[in-house]
Design a protein around this nucleic acid. Structure first.
Length: 863
RNA sequence: GCCUGGGUGGCGGAAUAGGUAGACGCAAGGGACUUAAAAUCCCUUGAGGCAUGUCCUCGUACGAGUUCGAUUCUCGUCCCAGGCACCA
């Protein structure tokens, strides 16, 4: 054992050992209990960043821990390799997206290996390979056959910068989730997955995902957005047409005074044709079509609309209601028509005020005067129904159901449920994605590619044009194929699939990554799935996690898997943050562009003092990033791993601190020196594992502390993944060991000392696997066996010492403490408490009302 | 506006069934070793008070409440972060 700790030397050695011996390769083994641990695979953007390091370190600790607990652990890694950055980078650097992607993968794979993660690299998946997307195309065809995929022309979210369509989930506050540019509406033919078919099931199971953070399931519930109410038919006066509306407030039907249609509603043209209002209507529709949905639905956008020159009748009382088109009515939600009740809906209220429409109060809160309701704003709360014929006097909560019963009895409307979630649009007008396996034929329409012709390989020729248009459309050799159904000349679909499709089933592919006869081997999936613990960023709370749940249901209903939920437990780790530094002239500064003069940072470019800004998520734009490779180079992977775990519990944000990293490095150095001090003496000593009672006092104390530490670390990892407190516990133990000088101890301590030192190595091994493996070997254990060692049990009879510290309170205030034999009875404890000199000061001359004795903890004397 | 989290020393964070608030680490200050520095080791460190103690008072965003006892439970208020938002 070297006297000094040389992390890089040790880490290189163990990493190559693990690689050569395939130490973490696994096979399905029905005789053993499995544990599938998965971290969200990365997009190969170029380099590993610190967020990856944190995510994968958390996962690696759990994987190593579970392995030591005897589980057969599947812990794979791969690459979410299709996507637009590859294409953009290819255009910018005049290279090919494939080349850019594969080069990045090579770099990032090396970086991951430098961190010592225990992946089964034999199972590596790269989603842009035909071996992988072949099965995605196969699944697409199966879904097509089951009518789970369809094509329609619709308005879609379009990003001009990315030159492609975005799913609703991929639009953030009106901007593209990837590049941040404004999204506009464009009418296009698109492929869709019928995720809405599963809206109810996905929603219902949200409450059964007990291993998921509540905020994630809440976000999914909000996204699915279920509302219950009624669908009602309003006849249009003087025609045979009816307008169908969805409402969550059937109880306000008697207050409906006008109707609002979305500008795109099919009846708008028909009903306004030939009317005096036609021109105004056409103008309004034209104007709305130029505004994106997102703009139309912007914050506090003024409500506006146009009367279309037609009326409909309220089916419950034949009231004549003017029909408007309104900017706030959206064709995509419900039926595209709103029954407007201005007294009880804020939008309708504002609209009615602006256009002088009738406002009728039909819900009255307890004790309120009807005249005071809906004067300055709509009343949206509960109350008693009024002005509602036979329903007047009924509580509106009960009225909702009663009114729908009435509708159903008279054929006016029915009970109905609406969801906010839309079908998942997956067409992307880009090159670097999985081709959609469809051929367009003039005679047969859209025809799926036959299974034997899969994969539809993405052609290599890629003359990517500025602006990112897909080259597939102009590649005759790709486009021109015969129709699989009739043989006539056909044209291939040139859209590629959304990259979220690849990540919706990769976790199943990991179970049998090389299977070339099926999407996966049923036995392998049956054994490994579902994922026992999934770990990743909360930014995927809706998109990736919802899509994956949907895909798993599709596979379930095809009989390919026997479970509906892919991820039993989910951990969403917090972001890695760091303070930002800004120079007045040079803007944000990278850490290496910042020079510290004392406490004050200065700009390295101009030398003027720089301003320290708030702590924010690490990002290139804020330049508050750090390079994991440089850290590994300076301190070693173990230090980086240790700091990522120690600085904060996993689900919380982590504030990066260079001094904190130093502290972690110092701790590992202390551990190294601790072993170095004892190695000659204890190299051949057997660890003591017997009962504590036969040990001399100070050895017993150490023995107990060690067992307490084992229990603490086990519980912290097992129950809560709170590695920070687990590490603290080991630090406490090592602090205690550090003050023991070998020269001053007689051999009676040796067995316990050896046990304590061995325990530290084992307990820390999932966290810092390299240094622990090295000291394990140096202490005379068989080389390389630590990572396969059993997780240590603790002795229940060695968890508590023979004495207890009891604290004494007087009226709940701490007044004294004493040590007493652990099996002293309440009377003895009480007597000691009343006898304590400081306690006596507070209780003398006073009457004691009550004495509360809490076993092993405290005495409270109530005066 | 609605829905989730969260607010504890100079800082990151502990306190896992209502029972010693501040574990562990960082930073800071003092000391030892050294020609010196680095490294290492030791001590101090929530605020305030004096009688300097096995001392007292205050203290977990703020205000109430339940309790012998509340960082922990209940109600109300404020602030921060994330998500959703003309969804009929």
């Amino acid at each position: 054992m070297d006297q000094k700790y040389h992390p890089r030397k040790i880490e290189t050695r163990w990493q190559s050992t693990w690689e050569e011996t395939k130490a973490y390769a696994v096979q399905a083994d029905p005789a053993r209990e499995k544990y599938y641990l998965l971290e969200m695979f990365p997009y190969p953007s170029g380099r590993i960043h610190i967020g990856h390091v944190r995510n994968y370190t958390i996962g690696d600790v759990v994987a190593r821990y579970k392995r030591m607990c005897g589980y057969n652990v599947l812990h794979p890694m791969g690459w979410d390799a299709f996507g637009m950055p590859a294409e953009n980078a290819a255009i910018a650097n005049n290279t090919h997206p494939a080349r850019w992607t594969y080069e990045n993968i090579a770099v990032m794979r090396r970086e991951l290996k430098l961190l010592g993660f225990s992946y089964d690299w034999d199972r590596e998946i790269t989603t842009c390979t035909p071996d992988y997307y072949r099965w995605e195309q196969w699944l697409f065809i199966k879904m097509y056959e089951k009518d789970m995929v369809y094509r329609k022309e619709s308005y879609v979210n379009w990003c001009d910068r990315c030159q492609t369509v975005l799913a609703n989930e991929q639009v953030e506050a009106g901007d593209c989730w990837r590049c941040g540019d404004a999204v506009r509406q464009k009418k296009l033919w698109q492929w869709f997955f019928r995720i809405t078919d599963y809206a109810e099931d996905l929603l219902e199971y949200c409450d059964r995902l007990e291993g998921w953070p509540e905020r994630v399931t809440t976000m999914q519930k909000n996204w699915i957005g279920k509302s219950t109410g009624a669908e009602i038919e309003f006849p249009v006066a003087g025609t045979d047409e009816v307008i169908r509306v969805f409402t969550t407030r059937p109880d306000t039907i008697y207050g409906a005074t006008f109707m609002c249609l979305a500008p795109e509603h099919p009846l708008v043209k028909k009903l306004s044709a030939g009317k005096a209002q036609q021109e105004a209507v056409d103008q309004f529709v034209e104007r709305m079509s130029k505004e994106s949905n997102v703009d139309r639905v912007q914050d506090n956008q003024e409500k506006e609309g146009v009367f279309i020159g037609a009326w409909c009748k309220n089916p419950v009382n034949d009231r004549k209601m003017p029909i408007y088109i309104a900017n706030f009515a959206l064709m995509e939600y419900g039926t595209g028509a709103v029954m407007s009740v201005p007294a009880h809906d804020q939008r309708d209220f504002e609209f009615a005020k602006k256009y002088g429409l009738d406002i009728i109060v039909v819900i009255q809160p307890e004790g309120a005067d009807e005249k005071d309701i809906a004067r300055s704003e709509a009343y949206t709360g509960d109350g008693v129904m009024v002005n509602s014929e036979d329903f007047s006097g009924m509580a509106n909560t009960a009225g909702k159901s009663a009114v729908i019963d009435y509708f159903e009895k008279h054929g006016i409307g029915t009970r109905s449920v609406n969801y906010r979630i839309r079908d998942w649009g997956i067409s992307r007008q880009r090159y670097w994605g999985a081709p959609i396996p469809i051929i367009h034929c003039d005679k047969c329409g859209t025809v799926p590619v036959s299974e034997k012709d899969l994969p539809v390989v993405l052609p290599e020729e890629a003359d990517l044009m500025e602006g990112g248009k897909s080259p597939l459309g102009v590649l005759d050799s790709f486009v021109n194929v015969p129709c699989p159904a009739c043989g006539a000349p056909g044209r291939r679909e040139t859209d590629t699939m959304d990259t979220f499709v690849e990540s919706s089933w990769y976790f199943e592919r990991y179970c049998s990554p090389d299977c070339d006869t099926a999407i996966f081997e049923p036995g392998a999936v049956k054994y490994w799935m579902p994922v026992d613990q999934y770990i990743g960023g909360v930014e995927h709370a809706v998109m990736h996690l919802l899509y994956s749940r949907y895909f798993t249901r599709v596979l379930h209903d095809m009989g390919l898997v026997d479970f509906k939920e892919p991820f039993t437990r989910l951990l969403t780790q917090g972001m890695v943050c760091k303070e930002t530094v800004r120079c007045e002239t040079h803007g944000y500064l990278y850490p290496e562009e910042t020079q510290y003069r004392g406490e004050i940072p200065h700009c390295a470019k101009c030398g003027s003092p720089a301003e320290v800004g708030r702590v924010e998520k690490m990002s290139k734009s804020k330049k508050n990033v750090i390079d994991p490779n440089a850290l590994v180079e300076n301190y070693g992977a173990d230090t980086v791993r240790l700091f990522c775990l120690f600085a904060a519990p996993p689900e919380r944000d982590l504030e990066w601190s260079e001094q904190g990293v130093e502290g972690s490095f110092r701790f590992l150095n202390r551990i190294w020196r601790l072993y170095y001090r004892w190695i000659d003496r204890l190299g051949k000593t057997k660890p003591y594992t017997g009962e504590p009672s036969s040990l001399p006092d100070h050895a017993r104390e150490l023995y107990i502390k060690t067992h307490q530490t084992i229990k603490k670390v086990t519980d912290d990892i097992e129950q809560r993944f709170h590695f920070n407190t687990a590490i603290s516990a080991v630090m406490e133990l090592s602090n205690q060991l550090n003050v023991i000088e070998p020269e001053q101890e007689d051999p009676s301590i040796d067995g316990v000392m050896r046990f304590a030192l061995d325990s530290i190595a084992v307990l820390l091994s999932p966290i810092v696997p390299h240094i622990t493996e090295q000291i394990w070997e140096a202490m005379g254990n068989e080389s390389g066996t630590l990572c396969r060692r059993q997780w240590p049990p603790y002795r229940d009879d060695a968890l508590s010492s023979d004495t207890r510290v009891i604290v004494v309170q007087v009226n709940g205030k701490l007044r004294g403490r004493f040590e007493i034999d652990a099996n002293a009875d309440d009377a003895a404890i009480k007597a000691r408490a009343l006898d304590d000199p400081n306690v006596v000061r507070f209780i003398e001359d006073k009457e004691i009302k009550k004495v509360i004795v809490v076993k092993n903890k405290l005495v409270n004397i109530v005066l």
